[in-house]
Simulated assay, not measured.
Amino acid sequence: MRKHVSRTLIGVAAVSALLLTGCSGGGGGADSGKPNLPKGDEVSTKVDPSLKKLLPEDIQKKGSIDIAVDIPFPPLSAYDANNREIGFDPELGRLLGQKLGVDVVLSKQAFDSVIPSMQAKKHDIIMSGMNDTPEREQTITYVDYTHGGFAILVKPGNPKKITGQSALCGKTVSVQKSTIQGELLRATKCSGAPVTVMELPTDLDALTALRAGKSDAYSADAVVADYVAATTDDGKAYEIVRDPENPAGFNPVYSGIGVLKSNTQLVDAMQKTLQALIDDGSYQKVLERNHMEAYSVKTAEVNQGGKTQ
């Protein structure tokens, strides 16, 4: 979801350390208890009272929207040195709240539990770079906010000579549990031995497996793989394998804001609010701030994953 990386976001090593101390939720990290609004050089927008009226009554009454975010997953999400949630998802989430005129509560949630947690009413929406797939659409409605594929990381020098997805046949690839990459890799057409998919609890675990030689490659959303390759050990820890025919990554898919399928009123509010952020230019600025502009969408559409796969 981006081509190049600056130091706007903290590096992977710092993310790993902050993971041990990062807050598990609550509207603004070090500023917990205060309204969770954009601050510093973060992108800001103006409130639109007409959009707030679209929200379900329970959210209007409590005056806040609870967002589940898998942290860390840079550049989509991370903690800064003050335990403030940063990255595309937290920053876009704050913009949604600001446009709607409600507070935002960002809750750290393991990726493989975000849907059950929302079903249990522990949060209102999911913003975790979640791919929009037909299977997930059986439970979740997506307001799609990015479009991109996955990329492959290998060790420096590419000792296994991996040149693309088909070259992963007979190899072991580490991925984060419950991500679409595992499904896509298992579906790889191989004339001989299939791809062995090593699913691990966190994205950091999957990266560590590659670095330790337990896997031959690592796969994640292109935006994440690109970030890791560019920032870890000054770009010397990994090499990225790209799809020469698609700069946005192998098997591009939509990702978006997840809302319970039954909550049609909230889906409508999220779609119209995201469209308002696209129209006023703040959505594009958040993408650019996080170097994800190659993965933008032009309009806020719903459930495009089910239409294109």
Rank of each mutant, 00 (worst) to 15 (best):
Ala230Gln: 13
Gly11Ser: 14
Ser107Tyr: 08
Ser166Tyr: 07
Val267Leu: 03
Ala120Trp: 08
Val228Asn: 03
Asp66Pro: 00
Ile240Cys: 04
Val114Met: 14
Gln98Trp: 02
Ala225Pro: 06
Leu19Thr: 15
Asp89Phe: 08
Gly148Lys: 05
Gly22Val: 11
Glu293Gly: 09
Val175Asp: 02
Asp234Gly: 12
Gly26Ser: 13
Leu100Phe: 07
Thr45Met: 00
Lys189Phe: 07
Ala68Asn: 11
Asp279Ala: 13
Asp80Glu: 09
Phe73Asn: 15
Gly192Cys: 04
Ala187His: 12
Ile86Leu: 01
Leu37Gly: 02
Gln181Lys: 06
Thr202Pro: 08
Gly22Asn: 12
Ser117Asp: 11
Ala167Glu: 14
Ser166Val: 13
Lys171Asp: 01
Glu293Ala: 12
Asp48Met: 12
Ser215Ile: 01
Ala81Gln: 09
Cys190Glu: 06
Arg186Gly: 15
Pro156Ala: 11
Ala209Glu: 02
Leu9Cys: 02
Val154Met: 00
Glu85Gln: 14
Gly149Phe: 09
Ser215Val: 06
Gly149Arg: 05
Ile126Trp: 03
Lys53Leu: 14
Val195Arg: 02
Ser32Asp: 00
Arg94Val: 01
Lys52Gln: 13
Lys307Thr: 07
Leu207Cys: 10
Val104Leu: 05
Val12Gln: 05
Asn83Ala: 09
Gly235Ala: 11
Ser178Val: 07
Asp221Ser: 10
Ser113Asn: 15
Ala167Gly: 14
Phe111Gln: 05
Tyr238Ala: 08
Val102Leu: 03
Lys121Cys: 01
Leu54Asp: 04
Ser166Phe: 00
Gly101Thr: 05
Leu20Ile: 11
Leu95Thr: 05
Ile140Asp: 06
Arg186Tyr: 07
His291Met: 11
Thr308Tyr: 04
Val267Ala: 06
Val143Thr: 12
Asp70Gly: 00
Val173Ile: 07
Leu106Met: 04
Glu245Ala: 15
Pro35Gly: 10
Gly26Gln: 14
Leu96Asn: 04
Ala167Lys: 13
Cys190His: 00
Gly87Pro: 02
Leu184Met: 12
Ala30Ser: 15
Gly28Trp: 03
Gly63Arg: 09
Glu288Tyr: 00
Pro72Lys: 02
Ala220Gly: 09
Lys298Asp: 11
Ala229Val: 12
Lys161Tyr: 05
Arg211Cys: 05
Asp80Ala: 03
Asn36Cys: 15
Lys155Val: 10
Ala269Tyr: 03
Asp58Gly: 11
Ala269Pro: 08
Ile67Gln: 01
Gly97Tyr: 05
Cys169Arg: 10
Asp144His: 00
Lys298Thr: 11
Tyr238Arg: 08
Asp89Pro: 10
Gly192Ser: 12
Glu137Ser: 13
Ala17Cys: 03
Gly249Arg: 04
Gln304Phe: 05
Thr202Phe: 01
Tyr218Asp: 10
Tyr295Glu: 13
Arg211Trp: 07
Lys61Leu: 12
Leu106Gly: 05
Phe111Thr: 08
Tyr227Gln: 02
Leu168Ala: 02
Gln271Val: 04
Ser64Met: 11
Ile278Tyr: 06
Gly256Ile: 07
Asn131Met: 12
Lys160Gln: 10
